[in-house]
Structure formats: structure tokens, C-alpha cells
Design a protein around this nucleic acid. Structure first.
Lengths: 237, 237
DNA sequence: CAGTGGTCTAGACCACGAA
DNA sequence: TCGTGGTCTAGACCACTGG
């Protein structure tokens, strides 16, 4: 194994933790001790330990020392698919059909829109993502026109509003919620379902520098979409 | 803002990227230049840039320099809740009720179990997570007894099998899938629903050193659980 | 070839916080 | 108080790879 020294130290410690020799709460030797053990400078040891702390595998406390962290709550990297890509990967054609589109002030009485946390003019949009001409997902969205004025006259037909926004404005923070729901009469009609049918509901808020950019709710018939998330204990390769 | 120097450098660069002054592909000044600009040692500059590279915000290539990375695909950190904790947070009592439990070889004809990728003896378990005595979620699980022999006789009543396993065996890799589904007659009866009602289905596979540890499928009535995922461009605080 | 990042050293001072 | 980690310095050598 060709590797740098700080990486060797890191993986040695990881191995001790993963094999159970160093259980949660175990006190890892302090830097000056590892420095002697590996015959290197303190900076090199520090780099290894800082990495492990950033990855959440250990916890460092001044004066007290470095300790093996308790097993973390399950968390994983969730990939939010681009709908157009998903559909094209299935060999079908994609199109976004706008159902309604108008400009109005942000509705602060709506709890979902509230979270955007800024008074602004928004474009409210509803539309359908079509797979081979058939409804694939229903989308309801508001876009902050103060931050993205170009959105007002943009054409979303080919890529959908999500991909258009991603290319036109960078975001610094985002939140998603995922839930199951039974569709109502209106949604059922648009998606060609029966009222009460199970759907996956994906909501997303995005902010840029603390200002809300967009809120979107997407509704997929249950069979159409499955989200996947991967867990890896080490965030970096 | 009281802060360390490497953090100042880092946030300065982040701001340049987020505000659009430094678009994707932009070449960031090399270390020796920033070293002069901030009047500090190269190690300090390097620490800031290494962090940004680890976070995926920039890409570093020897000889060529450091470049602003292209915007990443939507991905977010998904938190998979511990069911017992969710329920206790609601002020209700939690209990796990085992419905069936037996030992058998891994069923390689079952596509879900296939993914564990090892022939082994498993414990197959079905049970209910109870909130205040009422069904909250249905769980079907297989556990690799070759890796976790203690699971055979463990008592899951207080914490549920998931939390028990988390404490008894570390895992190195995991995969989740999330989907909506309509419950069938059997599930409806156990969860006290009407057949066809919308449910959220969460499946999880975990491995340890390439060997499958457990597969679990959990089914929640639509209203009972909402998953949240947060996106932050900086993986560390 | 030479610019650039990757790594490492042998010190140093300071702030925090457990004992 | 004083052990510990957090941060920083002013160098150094090397590996990689683009021009």
C-alpha cells in the first residue's frame, strides 16, 4: 500500500475502530504520543486526527483528549434525480407542460412558502412532467423573481424548471422532505390516477445566501419513482 | 468575526464562488500567490484549499492549478430516523412487537436478499413498531447470523432490531431506497389500515467489509413519517 | 522542463476546559 | 493549573503533469 503517512495513521485508527478494538468512548493516544509512535511531526498526526474528527469518527476535546465517537445516527447521501434525465434514461421522450403561470407576491400565509423567509415577488407555476406524452409527475413551484428575474419569461419545455434554475442560479442551501400521500381528485385527474392512489411527494426549498430562491412540490405516482441513498462512513475516498 | 486564518481564506473563496464572481472553471490563484496576499505561510493556504477540495467546491490539479468545480448534481444528506426516538420525541411509549422469527439459509431467489451477496444463515424477522401500543410501522428483516450470532437470541422489545444491531455490529456501507406504495391486505390488517392506503416504504441494506449484515424493509402509513434531507455545500461546520 | 500541489518537519504560541 | 488540541511558521523535498 503506497500512501502518505497521515493516511496511514488515519487508516490504522479507522481499522482499530471498525474492528471493535477501540469501542465508542475509547481514548485515542494524544498527538504527542502518536508522534513518537510513528516517528513524525505533530502536524502529520494532527492532519490524520482532524480528518477523522471532520468525518465524525472521533470527537476531540481540549485538555481531555480524542475519543472514539458514538455510532452516528443513520445518515446517507441522497441523490435527487433530474426528472428529464430519469425519463430519457428509460428511452422515453421528456417534455414539461406548463399548466398555469402567474406573478404575485409571496403568500406568507402558506406554510411552505413561509420558509423561504423573504418578502418578494414570485412566479407561481404548475405543470406536468411528461414521459412519452403521458403524465409522469405533477409540479407546483414558486420562484423568487427578485433573485431570478429571467425566470419570468423562460421556456421550461425541454428541461423543466428545476434544471433551468440549476443552470441559472447557484444555491447555497437546500432542504428536502419526502413523504407518501394519497392523491386528491384534482391531482388524480392530472396524473390520470384514481383519487386516493399512493404517491410519493418530494418537496424542496432552496436558498441563496439566506434568501429563498424557490420552493417546489413534486408528486409522483408510487410506481414511477424510487429514491436511493448511499451511506459511506468515510466521506472522502 | 473571530476566526482562524485558514477559515477566513476558505470563506473568502467560498464567497467568490457563491456570488458568481468565480464561475465554474475559474482558476483560483495558486498557493504561493494567496500566501503573499494573506501574508501567511503556505501551509495555512493549503489547509483552506484542501478543505475546499474535499468539500468538492474546487478541483486541484498539479501543475495546472486549482479550479472552481462544476455545480454538483442535487445530493443531500438524508437522516434516517431511529423509530424509537421519533416516537419518544412525540411523548409516546415505544415498543417492538415480534410477529415471527425463524432461522433459515439466505434465500438467493429473493432479489432483495440477493444483494447481501453472501451465502449465510439468516434470522428472518417480522414485527411491528408500536407507538402507544398502536401500530406505527411494519418491519421485515433478515440478519446474517454468521456475522451477528448474538442476534439469534436478542430481545428487541425496548429498542427495536435496528438500534440493537447498530450497537452490536459496525457497518461500513449502506444503501437505502425510498418509495411510496399501496399496502396489501396483509399489511393493512397489521397496520390497521384499509387495503390500498398509501404508505412510505423504506428499504435498507447494510454491509460490513463487503459482507451483507442485514436487509430490512419498513412500511409506514403515509401520515406517520416524513423524511428530511439537507443540502449544504460545505460538509463541515 | 518547471509550475503546482502533496507532504512533511521542528519548532512555536495560545485557548480551552477538566482536574 | 497544565495537558491537550488549534493554529501557525518558514522552510524543505518530491511527484505529477501541462506547456
Amino acid at each position: 500500500m503506497k500512501s502518505s503517512l497521515h493516511r496511514t495513521i488515519r487508516t490504522d485508527i479507522e481499522r482499530n475502530i471498525h474492528c471493535g478494538d477501540w469501542p465508542p468512548g475509547y481514548r485515542i493516544p494524544p498527538e504527542y504520543e502518536l508522534q513518537t509512535q510513528y516517528d513524525c511531526s505533530r502536524a502529520t498526526v494532527n492532519k490524520a486526527l482532524s480528518y477523522l474528527a471532520a468525518a465524525g469518527l472521533v470527537e476531540r476535546r481540549k485538555k481531555a483528549g480524542t475519543f472514539v465517537a458514538a455510532p452516528r445516527a443513520h445518515s446517507a447521501v441522497l441523490t435527487i434525480p433530474d426528472i428529464a434525465e430519469v425519463i430519457r434514461a428509460q428511452g422515453k421522450t421528456y417534455r414539461f407542460q406548463t399548466l398555469s403561470r402567474d406573478t404575485r407576491p409571496l403568500d406568507m400565509t402558506n406554510v411552505d412558502e413561509q420558509e423561504l423567509a423573504v418578502a418578494c415577488t414570485v412566479m407561481a407555476l404548475t405543470g406536468l412532467h411528461l414521459r412519452g406524452g403521458q403524465p409522469f409527475a405533477l409540479e407546483e413551484r414558486v420562484v423568487n423573481l427578485d433573485l431570478v428575474p429571467d425566470a419570468k419569461d423562460a421556456d421550461f419545455t425541454a428541461k423543466g424548471p428545476g434544471a433551468w434554475l440549476l443552470r441559472h442560479i447557484p444555491w447555497t442551501k437546500g432542504k428536502h422532505t419526502i413523504s407518501a400521500m394519497a392523491c386528491d381528485d384534482h391531482q388524480a385527474e392530472l396524473l390520470k390516477l384514481t383519487p386516493g392512489d399512493a404517491c410519493l411527494q418530494l418537496s424542496r426549498w432552496t436558498w441563496r445566501e439566506g434568501k429563498g430562491v424557490t420552493f417546489v412540490r413534486q408528486i409522483f405516482p408510487a410506481d414511477y419513482l424510487e429514491l436511493t441513498a448511499e451511506f459511506t462512513p468515510n466521506r472522502f475516498g
